[in-house]
């Protein structure tokens, strides 16, 4: 099992290279000239090409990508556009704010993580029981209520919901502040609700359908035939089996939450990483864009890995699969080599 985890961690590297190459290419071909944006508006063409030279933008495409990976030494006097490269996790400073790009992301990431964790906890607490009730009382009133609420939750755009909540609870009722910041837990209530709503809806539906499928399985019948009471049948036998697709969905959503919910962040003025990324793209702040993408790729890869590990803990068949994969490989290696 540890070997499996180790291999997965290693696989993150080629994924990163692939992703960053694509994003690098996209930012390269997209219109807009960072040098022009940094310099004052009356800059001459000579100024602009000098700046491009300092920034390393006049080099051929592949050479720029190599610099991106391994570092770039700018000919500028104060070495201001130099950086050590992706492999040292240093992509220099933002063209716009002049702050080190990774530092900016790492500073803001805990804010996003806080919101993500709270939203995740809320959505899991609400959605799984709702899904279970809905599935075990199929066709009843509670089933209908859950289904309708899920549909509503899915259909509401986050920014709209956020603004409505602000309108009601901040401006009219003065219960919660409209500006969220991580130090003030009370101010996080509304953004967490906004973020959690769609996730709850999706998870509840997934739990419901997964439970419905699991309840029809033969081993549930066996459990009942043992004389186990229905509640325990659901909890002990049905639920854990039903969770596997739900864990997948939650994993995807955690990934999305962690890379920042831009709309919610904007509506509540929350200092998360989603806003950083979108701003960087709008201003063609290439180092910040690339650093953000690298960060996002790493996060997603890690979240996926964690989800896969959780599978192994829920379902021993999957754990066995991982272990046999590692064994097969090493057996193959053993056969081939020594």
């Amino acid at each position: 099992m540890t070997r499996y985890i180790f291999r997965r961690l290693l696989m993150i590297v080629p994924v990163l290279v692939g992703v960053t190459f694509i994003v690098f290419s996209l930012t390269y071909i997209s219109p807009g000239d960072p040098a022009r944006m940094i310099l004052p508006q009356d800059a001459t063409d000579a100024d602009i090409s000098h700046m491009r030279h300092l920034m390393g933008l006049d080099e051929p495409f592949l050479l720029q990508y190599v610099h991106f990976l391994f570092g770039f030494k700018s000919p500028s006097e104060d070495a201001s556009f130099s950086y050590k490269g992706l492999l040292a996790l240093d992509l220099g400073r933002s063209y716009v704010s002049n702050r080190p790009v990774f530092k900016t992301i790492l500073e803001r990431f805990p804010n996003t993580a806080l919101l993500a964790i709270l939203a995740l906890i809320l959505s899991v607490i609400l959605s799984i029981p709702a899904g279970i009730i809905s599935a075990t009382h199929q066709y009843s009133v509670s089933d209908m209520v859950v289904s309708i609420l899920s549909l509503l939750g899915l259909s509401m755009p986050a920014f709209w919901l956020g603004m409505i909540l602000i309108w009601i609870f901040s401006v009219k009722l003065r219960i919660f502040p409209s500006l969220a910041n991580p130090a003030n837990l009370k101010s996080l209530v509304l953004p967490v609700i906004t973020l959690a709503t769609m996730n709850t809806a999706v998870q509840a539906r997934m739990t419901r359908s997964s439970m419905l499928e699991v309840i029809r399985q033969d081993y549930i019948r066996t459990a009942r035939a043992k004389g186990l009471d229905e509640k325990k049948v659901i909890r002990k036998h049905a639920l854990n089996n039903a969770l596997i697709p739900v864990v997948t969905v939650i994993g995807l959503q955690v990934g999305q939450l962690l890379v920042g919910a831009v709309l919610t962040e904007t509506v509540f003025s929350y200092p998360g990483i989603g806003t950083i990324m979108v701003d960087a793209i709008q201003r063609k702040d290439t180092p910040q864009i690339l650093a953000s993408v690298v960060f996002v790729a790493i996060i997603f890869a890690l979240v996926n890995l964690i989800v896969d590990i959780v599978y192994a803990f829920i379902d021993p068949r999957i754990k066995a699969q991982y272990e046999s994969m590692s064994k097969a490989r090493s057996n193959g290696a053993a056969r081939k080599g020594t």
Binding site: Y219, A225, D229
Partner: peptide, 27 residues
């Protein structure tokens, strides 16, 4: 029902047709 549960598995047991799916895979 609660009386019946005391009987199931205890005084009257039943086994079913398809063994491949009658056991909980994760226990």
């Amino acid at each position: 029902e609660d009386e019946m549960r005391k009987i199931r598995g205890n005084e009257i047991s039943m086994i079913f047709q398809d063994p491949m799916t009658s056991l909980n895979p994760i226990l």
